[in-house]
């Protein structure tokens, strides 16, 4: 998800009207009654589908918070002048990025309890896997953000005798985080989409709810279309938020 160029209103309207056309026409293949809000069963089905929203959001937000913290902790050795420390950062990022998220989810849920001797809930298995996977990307974002801060800022901090922690906390990170906020927002969008994979281990989020309804109603076309729209609405909302943030920060910089 790159928000580099503005999508533009006309394109967006065309997309929406195209979708509407698609959904209203071809009545032979569509059976919208499954999710028709004017009937009791349709309404129940809709509510059932939407009931996964809280978990999707909760899962994504918890995972992104953890992965941001982890990403920062992994980014810091990557900025060190010590080769071994940079090596630790490099290995972590390369390794974690190489593992598919779905595989990581399966491994954490089914594999981890066997070696760690703990039972782990579906929710936390999902959070850990998503956060782990995303932390490598967050680490790269933090590293780039911190590296973009002028060397003079470190030197000024050193000249007033600040130690490493205070230099990071009061001088470097506040400036770096401001710069990487849009990138972090994009990671949240990415996380919302990836959270759908946690459905495979039984997490009751949007995708899982849709899957379960399909099994009982046999209307995959309509139900998955609703699912698409759910993600679309959620992600457009978050992207709009990210763009708003970006604009605010830009005007902030200008004055």
């Amino acid at each position: 998800m790159k928000s580099a160029s503005q999508p533009g209103k006309p394109a967006f309207l065309m997309l929406i009207s195209g979708l509407a056309l698609l959904l209203s026409g071809c009545s032979g293949q569509w059976g919208w009654y499954v999710v028709n809000p004017t009937t009791t069963s349709g309404m129940n089905n809709l509510q059932f589908l939407l009931s996964g929203l809280v978990n999707t959001v909760l899962l994504s937000l918890t995972a992104i918070c953890l992965s941001i913290v982890a990403g920062l902790l992994i980014a810091l050795p990557g900025l060190s002048s010590h080769r071994p420390l940079r090596g630790v950062n490099f290995c972590y990022v390369e390794l974690v990025r190489a593992v598919p998220i779905l595989v990581l989810i399966l491994w954490v849920y089914y594999g981890l309890p066997q070696i760690a001797d703990v039972s782990i809930s579906v929710f936390w298995a999902g959070v850990i896997a998503l956060a782990l996977s995303d932390s490598a990307f967050e680490a790269e974002i933090f590293r780039a953000g911190i590296q973009s801060i002028n060397r003079g800022q470190y030197e000024a901090a050193q000249s007033i005798s600040l130690n490493y922690r205070d230099t990071m906390r009061f001088v470097i990170l506040p400036q770096a985080i401001k710069r990487i906020l849009p990138a972090l927002g994009n990671q949240l969008v990415y996380m919302l989409k990836m959270s759908s994979l946690v459905s495979v281990i039984g997490m009751q989020e949007l995708t899982r709810k849709a899957n379960e309804l399909v099994v009982t109603e046999y209307r995959p076309l309509e139900i998955y279309t609703i699912l698409v729209l759910e993600y679309l609405a959620l992600i457009l909302l978050v992207s709009a938020g990210v763009r708003w943030l970006e604009r605010r920060l830009q005007t902030d910089e200008r004055h």
Binding site: N150, G152, Q153, E155, A156, Q158, S159, I160, S161, N163, F170, V171, P174, Q175, K178
Partner: peptide, 19 residues
């Protein structure tokens, strides 16, 4: 660090903390 506390430095580019 203890020595730097006793030595002030002023830079060509000011290097104030902009935030």
């Amino acid at each position: 660090r203890r020595i730097r506390a006793k030595i002030g430095m002023v830079f060509q580019q000011f290097n104030l903390f902009p935030h």
